[in-house]
Nucleic acid binder design. Structure first.
Length: 286
DNA sequence: GTACAGGCAGTAT
DNA sequence: ATACTGCCTGTA
């Protein structure tokens, strides 16, 4: 999702070594037959994957059931009504892992910059739709990269983590399919073994690429939302946390357990709505 | 020039 | 278990 961008009236994004595109045709075409509605969305990709939108936009989820379940919470219910089209996106696992490794301690703008630079340097150049794109770098290419090459992409001290993760995966220590099958807790334990991956980044990877809809990533924005709207959810013992500041590993565990217990198996969707709500209310332009 | 973005690892307590 | 610190880099 970091690498999606709008060009003219279409959106382009990368999913591993594929380039995706979708466009909405608002203009009325008098030649079109009655089967084509004006607001139809066209999906395309290169190399072509038929029906990729089902995977990426999670059309396989029972969204009615999910939104209905989450509507038990006042704030989430309000946010669903305000932003009815907001969805979770499914990302290519390796891309997701490196994206969130880059995401530590920096802004979304900077994350996009880092990932674009990495793609340009280590990805494959692809011409699609008359435009030049770069696929997301393979784990192998990142593993072979030198520290200086990585740093030239503006990732700073994250270069060390990128190398560590790439080496870990290339060495065969991470079985993505296995992680996607096992429980949230077990998969998280595996991810936390890797240098550069902590609680928040692990939760993002689990939610966005490893099918753990019960993951609830807690970042500074979520902490602000909790502090403002969910103090009632935590008991006195936990309430002593200054939730607008950084939290320790143990505090993260306690908050995470409470939130996952409260929101249930679709906690990740709840997190997305809360995250979007709190950033919008802060006037963030993404 | 400074503040800010904002998560992880390492070390001291 | 918590408190505190350093960390690249670009934008405002």
């Amino acid at each position: 999702m970091f690498l999606w961008e709008r060009i003219d009236n279409s959106w382009y994004g990368t999913f591993g070594d594929h380039v995706m595109k979708f466009s909405t045709s608002y203009t009325h075409n008098r030649n079109c037959n009655n089967n084509n509605k004006n607001n139809d969305i066209q999906f395309d990709s290169y190399p072509e994957i038929k029906g990729w939108e089902r995977k990426v936009f999670r059309l396989d989820d029972d969204i009615k059931a999910i939104l209905s379940t989450l509507s038990n919470d006042d704030l989430v219910s309000k946010t669903i009504k305000k932003y009815p089209g907001l969805r979770l996106m499914r990302q290519e696992p390796h891309q997701c892992i490196f994206s969130f490794v880059c995401a530590s301690n920096t802004s979304i703008l900077m994350i996009r910059k880092m990932l674009k630079n990495l793609s340009k340097k280590f990805g494959r150049e692809v011409t699609f739709d008359g435009k030049v794109f770069f696929t997301f770098p393979s784990v192998n290419s990142l593993n072979k990269a030198t520290m200086n090459e990585l740093r030239s992409c503006g990732v700073g001290y994250r270069a060390k983590a990128i190398k560590a993760v790439a080496k870990y995966i290339v060495s065969g220590n991470l079985d993505i399919d296995y992680l996607a099958r096992i429980s949230y807790q077990d998969a998280k334990e595996e991810l936390l073994k890797i240098y550069g991956i902590g609680n928040k980044i692990a939760d993002c990877i689990l939610l966005f690429s490893l099918e753990k809809l019960d993951a609830f990533p807690i970042d500074i924005w979520i902490l602000r939302a909790l502090s403002r709207h969910y103090r009632w959810l935590f008991n006195e013992n936990e309430n002593r946390f200054k939730m607008t500041e950084r939290i320790t590993m143990n505090q993260y565990k306690i908050l995470s357990a409470s939130l996952r217990n409260y929101f249930g198996k679709y906690s990740g969707y709840a997190q997305q709505y809360i995250f979007y709500y709190i950033r919008e209310s802060a006037g963030k332009k993404w």
